[in-house]
């Protein structure tokens, strides 16, 4: 535990590298998804709200992936990891790569992700890893807003018109399969939790369920048992959607290496 407290003491620590990729890729891929709304949101105000969230997530991804690159110790920075890695090397959860669908589906995904991310980053802000604790404390202020903002929309659409309610239900129906993955603990999570670097993800489940119940009651939405889970994102087994997302995101720096503007 004590050896993990130095921000430079992790050189070539494969578990920490992989763990940071998971955190950074979650933020990066969701940021890219959200940015697809830019210019297409239902209202100009909502367009700005979504873009703000996307930019917050890009900021988190930059800090986390830069750190991951330093831990890896092979000279890769955040940009290199973001733009010059193939889908099989991405460690994000499947939830964040799911398509935007309509506004209800996007808010369902955002609510589920931000609610879980808030619980996780509250723990990360207390990490024995000082660098990670600093990143988490900064990000947490953003995440609190994302979680509250998306919950507001879940309540309004769920308890809104018959059409908005149906869209909210359908949006969640797409996403339920990917919720269990958020709380999976494999050997990397276990090692990181044991070192006091992060809370074990399964320890967040009860608080997440309580939050979900509260929001769904306010939204007058039904909560049913989750369908069978689909896993694999943390090992690089992604849905077909990630490749298309990366093609759009990575095209420019790959076609024009070193391009600046």
């Amino acid at each position: 535990m004590t050896t993990a407290s130095s921000s430079t003491g992790h050189r070539s620590d494969p578990a920490l590298f992989d763990y940071l990729l998971r955190l950074g890729d979650d933020s990066l891929i969701l940021a890219q998804r959200l940015s697809e709304w830019c210019g297409h949101a239902p209202m100009i105000e909502v367009d700005l709200s979504i873009s703000n969230v996307a930019l917050d997530l890009v900021g988190q991804a930059t800090l986390l992936l830069d750190y991951a690159g330093e831990v890896e110790g092979k000279g890769r920075d955040g940009d290199k990891l973001a733009f010059h890695r193939d889908a099989l090397r991405f460690r994000n959860c499947l939830l964040v790569e799911q398509p935007n669908g309509d506004f209800g589906q996007t808010m369902a995904r955002q609510y589920l992700f931000s609610t879980c991310q808030r619980l996780l980053f509250r723990g990360l802000a207390q990490s024995t890893d000082a660098r990670l604790a600093g990143i988490a404390a900064k990000a947490l202020k953003e995440i609190e807003y994302h979680a509250d903002w998306s919950a507001e929309w879940v309540v309004r659409l769920g308890d809104g018109t018959p059409e908005s309610r149906e869209r909210m239900i359908n949006g969640f129906a797409w996403m339920w399969r990917f919720v269990d993955e958020l709380f999976q603990v494999d050997e990397i999570d276990a090692a990181i939790a044991k070192a006091g670097i992060a809370p074990a993800r399964d320890s967040l489940r009860a608080a997440f369920n309580a939050e979900l119940k509260k929001t769904f009651e306010a939204a007058t939405l039904p909560l049913a048992p989750l369908p069978a889970a689909i896993l694999g994102g943390r090992k690089g087994h992604h849905s077909e959607h990630l490749g298309h997302l990366l093609a759009a995101m990575q095209f420019l720096p790959r076609a024009y290496p070193g391009a600046t503007w």
Binding site: M43, E45, V46, L48, S49, N52, W149, E152, R156
Partner: peptide, 20 residues
């Protein structure tokens, strides 16, 4: 000014539009 369905979201839209 902003458009919003209610007061709470009006505050959020104001925050997102004018205090970036």
């Amino acid at each position: 000014s902003v458009r919003a369905p209610d007061a709470e979201l009006a505050l959020r839209h104001a925050r997102d539009t004018y205090t970036r």
